[in-house]
């Protein structure tokens, strides 16, 4: 594993911002770190890149503490907050300072500006005059400058327009397909669903779910429908499967499609519908977490409405 978070805890006074969190991020995959605002994502990422000390537990990248990397910019690209850049410097100068720190050739700056789609004129403007989307691109350019094999990004899609989000998605996809490791956080399930191969979901500082996106989203198994739902349910539980009747008279079960079909056939029940259940499990869990942490009811809309 390229990134390993182990029993990580961070307390501020009595409040545990991160509470015994453990997860990993693997090479060649995009790992989405999903959770409502204030769930502990940023704190975890800050600890990972050595900007904060954990109360207990450990965070390692490439088998080492981030702080022990001799020239971290060449191994791990980091973008934690695109607005955290000196407003009085030009975008080009901001990149050039990072390039000099890492000890890279000057041509690298132009290559990165080109890659993130900032024009020469834009690069000579001061960062305080940049839109959030441009800052996000500049931040990505800084993260990619040292040609790292690992990317750690906190809410990288913030401030990007739909085309920008698609650009970012393609970029990260390509990075992971080349064997790179991407850990990115988001508070938007739709955004994570679209890009992440693996999902780690955090709520109130605790990891509440983690695994491959496909499994998590398909985690609730099979939906079977028959005219006699009670008999179907009884047959499935007699066969040793878990059974949950749904509101509209079907049966959700952890049996796979073939097993559910055979059980129904064996019980002499005509199946009227048989399919993989909707991936409602993760979304419901996420909405529940979000709702419970919601201080401002109006912002619920942004949480589930801003599909990219």
């Amino acid at each position: 594993m390229v990134i390993t978070i182990e029993s990580l805890t961070k307390r501020y006074g009595g409040f545990a911002a991160v509470d015994d969190a453990s997860f990993t991020a693997a090479p060649g995959r995009v790992t989405g770190f999903l959770g409502p605002n204030g769930a502990g994502k940023s704190t975890t990422l800050r600890i990972l890149v050595g900007l904060a000390e954990p109360t207990s537990g450990s965070a390692r990248v490439l088998g080492r503490r981030y702080g022990d990397l001799p020239n971290p910019g060449l191994e791990v690209g980091v973008l934690l907050d695109a607005s955290a850049q000196h407003g009085g410097r030009t975008g080009r100068e901001t990149l050039d300072l990072a390039r000099r720190t890492m000890g890279l050739p000057a041509a690298r700056v132009d290559a990165m500006l080109d890659l993130v789609g900032l024009t020469g004129a834009e690069s000579r403007r001061r960062v305080r005059d940049y839109s959030l989307g441009m800052r996000q691109r500049l931040g990505i350019a800084t993260a990619l400058l040292g040609d790292p094999r690992v990317l750690v990004l906190d809410e990288p899609a913030n401030g990007l327009d739909p085309a920008g989000i698609r650009w970012m998605r393609d970029l990260l996809r390509g990075f992971a397909d080349d064997g790179g490791t991407v850990l990115l956080s988001s508070h938007l399930l739709a955004e994570i669903e679209m890009i992440a191969d693996d999902i780690v979901m955090i709520g109130r500082g605790r990891i509440v779910a983690s695994g491959p996106t496909r499994d998590l989203l398909a985690g609730v198994g099979t939906l079977v429908r028959s005219d006699d739902a009670a008999a179907l349910g009884a047959a499935l539980s007699a066969a040793g499967f878990q059974v949950t009747p749904t509101a509209d008279g079907a049966v959700a079960t952890d049996a796979d499609l073939a097993a559910a079909g055979r059980v129904a056939f064996g019980a002499g029940l005509a199946v009227t519908e048989l399919r993989t259940a909707d991936g409602a499990g993760l979304e419901e869990m996420f909405l529940e977490l979000t709702a419970a942490d919601q201080r401002d009811p109006a912002s619920t809309v942004t949480t589930n409405g801003a599909a990219a």
């Binding site: 890149v49 050595g50 900007l51 971290p72 910019g73 980091v78 934690l80 907050d81 607005s83 955290a84 850049q85 000196h86 407003g87 009085g88 990072a98 720190t101 890492m102 800084t142």
Partner: peptide, 10 residues
């Protein structure tokens, strides 16, 4: 200016 975030990450 919060550039410390980049400075100390590098």
């Amino acid at each position: 200016q919060r550039s410390a975030l980049t400075t100390f990450a590098l």
